[in-house]
């Protein structure tokens, strides 16, 4: 899994946060990273000062966030030389962290997340279709042609990249900023379905058709296809949530080469 991640992937974990409830956001960002295996058991987190700088929050906020993680049994703090906060080697099976993350969100929150992300992404796609020049459309095609969606990790990186490119083509700085913010906040969760080979094939299969709609300047088609994509991801999350709530076995595909 590590070999597939470029060094930057880990840095997303520490990108700046926005708005209130920051200690909870610190905890959630780090929890997602541990769930996805971006931070591995036994690994030392950056210092509290460094975390504060990277997240753009006060030191006290970082400490509060780490308390939440300690209480959840995700990290432990050691004192003295070589001390710091370490990711705990979980005795629990690997899917259990994801289960707790999905348990922590209500169905209504998960479906609302998909609705909001879809609305932003559909708007980006429609505008992109109306505003992309022929050269822009060619560039998008060329990027897509060489983008690797064959593994979970690459599919997640490039799916996020594709949505960001659509925002860029919309020519709207606000949509670009919102897309970046949404991906930092919910990207790992929303794109979990790409760990499932069937869902991954269906979602990535739509990319080429979206690019074609943009080439043809067909805003409505681009919008509909993006909505289909996000619906697949949202439905996968809800299916998994239901399975976990019933106490069923986790789906191995969730954490497969995440």
């Amino acid at each position: 899994m590590k070999a597939q991640l470029r060094p930057g992937a880990r840095e997303a974990i520490f990108a700046q946060l926005i708005e209130a409830g920051r200690a909870e956001q610190v905890a959630r960002r780090l929890t997602d990273a541990i769930i996805l295996g971006l931070l591995t058991p036994g690994e030392r987190l950056p210092s509290e000062q460094e975390l504060a700088r990277r997240f753009g929050v006060a030191l006290i906020t970082v400490r509060e966030g780490l308390v939440i993680l300690r209480d959840a049994g995700l990290v432990e703090t050691r004192r003295g030389r070589g001390g710091g906060s370490f990711v705990i080697k979980a005795d629990a099976p690997p899917g259990s962290l994801l289960q707790s993350r999905l348990r922590g969100l209500a169905q209504v929150e998960l479906s609302d997340l998909a609705v909001y992300f879809s609305t932003i992404a559909e708007g980006c796609a429609e505008r992109a279709a109306l505003r992309a020049s022929a050269v822009d459309a060619e560039r998008l095609d060329a990027w897509l042609l060489h983008a690797d969606f064959s593994t979970t990790a690459r599919a997640r990186t490039n799916a996020g990249g594709f949505y960001l490119e659509l925002a860029v083509l919309s020519q709207s700085p606000r949509l670009v900023r919102e897309q970046i913010r949404l991906q930092a906040e919910f990207g790992p969760l929303l794109l979990l379905g790409l760990g499932d080979p069937d869902t991954r094939a269906q979602v990535t299969g739509l990319n080429g058709r979206i690019a074609l709609a943009i080439t043809h300047g067909d805003g409505q088609a681009a919008r509909t296809l993006v909505a289909d994509q996000v619906r697949l991801l949202g439905e996968w999350l809800l299916t998994m949530k239901a399975r976990i709530e019933r106490g069923g076995r986790r789906d191995d595909a969730i954490v497969d080469d995440a």
Binding site: R6, P7, G8, A9, E11, A12, F14, A15, Q16, R54, H146, A147, T157, N158, G160, G161, F162, L164, I180, Q183, A184
Partner: peptide, 12 residues
């Protein structure tokens, strides 16, 4: 600092 621009990681 490009290391903090993870959303650009997809740019090969």
């Amino acid at each position: 600092d490009l290391a903090t621009r993870v959303h650009t990681e997809y740019l090969r």
